[in-house]
Design a protein around this nucleic acid. Sequence first.
DNA 1: CCGGTTTGGATGACGCGTCAACCAACATCG
DNA 2: CGATGTTGGTTGACGCGTCATCCAAACCGG
Lengths: 152, 152
Amino acid sequence: MTWLNADQQRAWRHWLLLSTRLPAALNRQLQADSDLSLADFDVLVQLSETADGRVRARDLGSALGWEKSRLSHHVRRMEARGLVSRADATDDARGSTVCLTGAGRAAIEAAAPAHVHTVRELFFADLTPAQLQVLTELTEQVLTRLPDPSPR
Amino acid sequence: MTWLNADQQRAWRHWLLLSTRLPAALNRQLQADSDLSLADFDVLVQLSETADGRVRARDLGSALGWEKSRLSHHVRRMEARGLVSRADATDDARGSTVCLTGAGRAAIEAAAPAHVHTVRELFFADLTPAQLQVLTELTEQVLTRLPDPSPR
DNA sequence: CCGGTTTGGATGACGCGTCAACCAACATCG
DNA sequence: CGATGTTGGTTGACGCGTCATCCAAACCGG
């Protein structure tokens, strides 16, 4: 069996560290400043990008790359906090539609500036265009090799 | 306020996706093949790298970059499964020492080959040396800018 | 030596993410 | 039409990670 070589190990440990700490740092900032989680933010972004602030749950899930169970749990919690509401889909009696509430819209509008600022500051601040390009290629390349998350 | 430009957005979304899906994929593989989580694996690696398979809890926590509360919870769960045991530290009456059990050693030895193979396959397979170097620089660069996780 | 602070660790509560199971509404094809 | 899938969504259980809180031992200044 071949273990990773020294360079790979170094890259791998740093990657693992970064891919846990960066989201954690963003979460803390969002939570402290706006009482939202990163996942809340992602949901609100999707909803606020549509004209009427309503998205079919199925489409929301696939846009976010979430399992339907995860989406269901999360939307339930967000609904309890008044950020979104749920309605039945018009064209499919099984379906469900997630709707952005006024409070939800207010929350993301209040949260976005500071969040974007933090992302820029923590991640993009010192990245050269060359690094950015390599990063983009690299992530896309690895993502294509990942097994598709099976819709459970 | 300046939102991210198109390149940055693309890189950012891919990054976010990858930094959740790659660990998830590894977790699934480890779980399915060896009934271990990625976190279990990390703990076992640390323990198995010492001569006697014992590490002071404090040191284990800082080696992993974990909060002490997280470590405490995790070790408790691993202890319940027989992978590690706990003992009092000899030199400090407050201290606690985490010890690798026979079952723990067997578990990591059984899990390592397939796990390493998956990491290589999913992440390093098609990475060029140039990409690897940029990735290493980039992660180190960003990590230094991250606020230190306060030892709670 | 005594009082205050720091350190090492445990615990309970709570939000998050996955898995397994379930159910009702479509779809398909005999 | 009816049997047999498939799709959209929910729920419960459980492991994970953070926060807040607590406690005892160790350290440190006067």
